[in-house]
Amino acid sequence: MTLVAALSIQPFLYLSAALFCAGLIAVLSRRNAVAILIGIELMLNAANINLVAFDRFRVQVGDAPVIDGQLFALLVLAIAAAEAAVALALILNVFDTRDRIDVDELDLLKG
């Protein structure tokens, strides 16, 4: 009897879908750019849960440890860190020049 033998992969997928939808709600409803970033982080976490869960429930081939999904999850982690740093730098820059970060009012490029 191993760690998650009592569980199947479906509960993890439902949970990941729920987290993704919470992130989608945040992205669609918020006007503050930082809050939108919070929603994006939630969506990235949902994707990572899927990667690790599929990695864990994969049929093992041979003796090699199955870690491909975890490697992808770690790369996603690095990209999320880079994305958060760049996004916050942009937000600070916009706040510096326009004194607000309400995304509805940032329509300088609107035709």
């Binding site: 998650v4 993890f12 987290l19 849960i49 690790v52 864990r56 999850a73 982690l77 999320a80």
Partner: peptide, 21 residues
Amino acid sequence: VAGLYALLGADFVAFSQVIVY
């Protein structure tokens, strides 16, 4: 989510999640 990674046996990813996120 880090606890879920630990439950799934991905200990390194769980700790990375806490440290990075």
